[in-house]
């Protein structure tokens, strides 16, 4: 047990880091979800121009590592003259990045509804807007919720990358303690345990949602 003494000294600092991680993830998830839904709608219902714009966006985001985008935002922001605090800079980049993956999830949810649902809604005289609002979205969001939750867990893990560009959160906090205590194994394991608690909780919640989707109401 003596080997884990450094962890006992640093745990409060680590938990504060975890708080920052959650704050960052939460701040990114909201706009990512909103943009994801918009992108999905543009891809499913948009005209040719909108569709190809979305496809291009997805191609670029899916093909470039998040770390590259974060690093260069960090270097480029000061050059562009936009006065954005680094925290909001990385939140913006993470939101735009994850919006692409969220849009795939929502699009799959919309497209996996059987044709009969559209037919029934149209035959009842619903306009497109009403149809989306009361028939399509409630079901599509429900179908999309399990993969959405696991994407959120992914996003929480991905926040660790911002430590590389110098922002302070759980991973950065653990590196600072390691520099003081020279006990990397224990401290990083402790940080991993905290990440695990957050992400595994989300994973369990996602599994619960999935069982609800599979078995109906």
């Amino acid at each position: 047990m003596k080997e884990f003494a450094p962890l006992l000294h640093g745990y409060w600092y680590l938990l504060r880091g975890a708080g920052m991680t959650l704050l960052m993830a939460g701040a990114a998830i909201l706009p990512a979800t909103a943009c994801g839904i918009l992108l999905a709608m543009a891809q499913v219902f948009g005209n040719r121009f909108a569709r190809s714009a979305v496809v291009g966006y997805l191609f670029i985001v899916r093909g470039i590592p998040l770390l590259v985008l974060l690093t260069f935002t960090y270097y480029l922001l000061p050059l562009t003259g936009i006065d954005l605090p680094p925290f909001w800079g990385v939140v913006l980049v993470m939101a735009l990045y994850y919006a692409a993956f969220m849009s795939e999830v929502f699009r799959a949810g919309i497209l996996s509804l059987p044709q009969g649902q559209w037919d029934a809604a149209r035959s009842l005289g619903m306009t497109r807007r009403l149809m989306l609002q009361i028939v399509i979205f409630p079901q599509a969001l429900r179908l999309a919720s399990p993969p959405f939750v696991s994407l959120c867990a992914n996003l929480v893990k991905a926040t660790s990358l911002v430590s590389i560009v110098g922002l302070w959160e759980l991973t950065m906090a653990s590196r600072e303690i390691v520099e003081r205590t020279l006990a990397p194994f224990q401290i990083f394991l402790g940080a991993a345990a905290i990440y695990f608690c957050i992400c595994y909780t989300l994973a369990l919640y996602g599994r619960y949602l999935e069982s609800r989707v599979l078995h109906g109401h």
């Binding site: 893990k157 991973t171 990397p184 990440y195 992400c199």
Partner: peptide
Amino acid sequence: NTPLLIQMY
């Protein structure tokens, strides 16, 4: 459920 970066460290 843990970040790759932490695993690398």
